[in-house]
C-alpha cells in the first residue's frame, strides 16, 4: 500500500509538471499579451515587461517559474496588482468548495436515488418520470436553470435571496442550480448500472435464497451498481469544487470559477498557470480517493496487485 501510494505520488508530480509546462507554452502561444490595452505606449510597455521579468528569454522565465513553483510560490497576478496567485486561490477556493460540497452531497443523494428508483421500476411510469427529469437536467444549460431559479424563487416569490453569499439561505438556489446536471448524469448512470446488475446470476441466487427485496437491493445490487457512479464522481467533484464560472457569476459568489475565464480573457499568465496547477493537483487527488474507494466498495479490486 505504501509503495502504491508512493508510486502514485511520483506519477502525480510528473503529471503536474507536464501539465504546467504544456500550459506555460500554450498560453504564450495565444495571440496578444497581458499588457496590451487601448492606451499603452511602447516605452511604458518596456517598463512593464521589465517589471514582470518578461524581458528575459522564455526558457529563463520558465526555469524561474518552475523554481518558484517548487517553493510553492505561484507568482503575482498580472492583472490584479500586488496580488499573489496563491492568495487568489486561498481567498476564493473556500467559497467554491463550500458550494461544491453542498452540491455533490445533494446531487449524489438525489441522483443515485432517482437512478435506483428508475432501475427498480423498469417500464413503469416511475421510470419514465426519472428519465424525463434526467433529460431535462442534461439538456438545460446551467445559465438557464440558474437564471430561472433566481427569477422565480428569488425575485418573484421572494423565498430565497436573489444573489450574494451571506448564509445558508443564500446557498439554496445556487446549490439547486448547480446540482441539476449532476443529478441527471448520476441518475442515468445509476439506472443503467442497476439494470445491468439486476440480470446477474448472483441476484437470482439471492432471490432464490429467499432474501428480502430490501436486503437484495441494499447489499447486493446497490453495492455492485454504484461503482461506475464512483468513477465519474471523482472528476465531477474536482470540477465542481474548484468553481464554476456561470453559477458563481449569476449568484455573485466570490468563488474561483470566474478566474479561469477572466484569466484567459486578460491573458493573465500567472493566474492561468496557478489555477491549472491547482486544478490538476485537485483532480489527481480526487481520482486517488476514487481508487481507494473502489477497494472499499469492492474488495475484489486490490490496489497493490495480486497477493500471493
Amino acid at each position: 500500500m505504501t509503495r502504491y501510494i508512493l508510486k502514485r505520488f511520483l506519477i502525480s508530480l510528473l503529471t503536474v509538471w507536464l501539465l504546467v509546462s504544456v500550459v506555460f507554452v500554450l498560453v504564450r502561444l495565444l495571440p496578444g499579451d497581458p499588457f496590451s490595452s487601448e492606451k499603452l505606449t511602447p516605452a511604458i510597455r518596456a517598463n512593464l515587461e521589465a517589471y514582470y521579468g518578461f524581458d528575459q528569454p522564455l526558457h529563463m522565465q520558465y526555469f524561474r517559474y518552475i523554481g518558484n513553483l517548487l517553493r510553492g510560490d505561484l507568482g503575482f497576478s498580472l492583472k490584479y496588482q500586488n496580488m499573489p496567485v496563491s492568495k487568489i486561490i486561498a481567498d476564493s477556493f473556500p467559497y467554491s468548495a463550500d458550494l461544491g460540497i453542498r452540491t455533490i452531497l445533494f446531487a449524489s443523494l438525489v441522483g443515485i436515488s432517482l437512478g435506483v428508483i428508475a432501475g427498480l421500476n423498469r417500464g413503469k411510469p416511475l421510470e419514465y418520470l426519472c428519465i424525463v427529469i434526467a433529460v431535462i437536467g442534461i439538456s438545460l444549460p446551467d445559465f438557464i436553470t440558474g437564471s430561472l431559479l433566481q427569477y422565480f424563487f428569488g425575485l418573484k416569490l421572494g423565498w430565497f435571496p436573489v444573489a450574494l453569499w451571506r448564509g445558508f439561505r443564500y446557498t439554496v438556489l445556487p446549490t439547486l442550480a448547480l446540482s441539476f446536471y449532476t443529478i441527471a448524469l448520476l441518475s442515468r448512470i445509476m439506472r443503467t448500472s442497476m439494470l445491468d446488475v439486476t440480470g446477474q446470476d448472483y441476484i437470482r441466487t439471492a432471490r432464490a435464497k429467499g432474501l428480502s427485496t430490501f436486503r437484495i437491493v441494499w447489499r447486493h445490487q446497490l453495492r455492485n451498481a454504484i461503482l461506475p457512479v464512483v468513477t465519474v464522481l471523482g472528476p465531477i467533484t474536482a470540477a465542481i469544487l474548484t468553481g464554476t464560472f456561470v453559477i458563481e457569476s449569476i449568484y455573485a459568489i466570490p468563488g474561483m470559477g470566474k478566474f479561469y475565464v477572466l484569466g484567459v480573457q486578460n491573458l493573465d499568465y500567472t493566474v492561468i498557470l496557478g489555477l491549472t496547477a491547482f486544478y490538476g493537483i485537485f483532480l489527481i487527488a480526487a481520482n486517488f480517493v476514487v481508487d481507494i474507494l473502489y477497494g472499499i466498495i469492492d474488495p475484489r479490486i486490490a490496489l497493490t496487485g495480486r497477493r500471493n
Partner: peptide, 18 residues
C-alpha cells in the same frame, strides 16, 4: 460595493432592494 459580475443579477438585486 458588491462584486456582481452578471448584469442581470445586479438588476435583480436592485429590483429586490439590495
Amino acid at each position: 460595493i458588491h462584486q456582481v459580475h452578471e448584469q442581470n443579477t445586479a438588476l435583480n438585486l436592485f429590483e429586490s432592494g439590495e
